[in-house]
Write a protein that binds this DNA or RNA. Structure first.
Length: 166
DNA sequence: AAGCATGACAACCGCCGATGC
DNA sequence: TGCATCGGCGGTTGTCATGCT
């Protein structure tokens, strides 16, 4: 008994391949040659060749949406990408990692430049909770605690910089 | 001009749930 | 019910272009 074909949201077939589809694939590979597995082909199509993929830099709105959704959802890139028409989960993930790296570097730079003023400052508990509530979730809790424990002064400037950026 | 560092993006890998035999 | 296959996801790595020294 043949499998009942099912379809994803975009109307693409799922499930087992039909004989007709097999024949089409065989014809294609025979004619043009292709030493790629299906998974690799799918990835290439989904992330690069699909006609509805948007090219170029992320807009400010897109970046804001990614950051906001990541705060809410965590690393659920496919869900986040679904809210960004023309963007793939891979693209969103890559872009976020780039943003993340940039922020971490910014943090390290600020940490070094503020080293002297840090030495005399220590946060009250209420100040600490204010900071925690403002910190983007892309700083994981472990990252945050390791920073917060020894680097309160820097956090003020970090939050200021985040406000300017977003 | 050459070598190196960095950022951006593409691709791979392993895992897991869904599906159907 | 167990197994094989497919499709999708997220983490990670590889590659290439660009800028800097």
């Amino acid at each position: 008994m043949p499998r009942t074909p099912s379809y994803d949201k975009s109307g693409l077939r799922k499930g087992i391949w039909t004989v007709e589809e097999d024949m089409k694939l065989i014809a294609y590979i025979t004619r043009y040659g292709l030493s790629r597995c299906g998974k690799s082909c799918r990835l290439r199509w989904m992330n690069y060749l699909r006609p509805d993929i948007k090219r170029g830099n992320f807009t400010q709105q897109e970046e804001e949406l990614i950051i906001r959704m990541h705060n809410e959802l965590g690393n659920r890139w496919s869900v986040i990408a679904a809210e960004l028409p023309g963007r793939t989960d891979n693209e969103v993930k890559n872009h976020w990692h780039t943003l993340h790296k940039r922020r971490v570097q910014q943090i390290n730079t600020n940490t070094v430049s503020n080293e002297e003023t840090m030495a005399t400052k220590s946060p009250t508990s209420s100040q600490m909770s204010d900071i925690t509530s403002q910190l983007p979730s892309f700083l994981s809790s472990s990252e945050f605690s390791s920073i917060a424990e020894d680097d309160f002064g820097f956090l003020d400037s970090y939050i200021e910089s985040m406000d300017e950026s977003f």
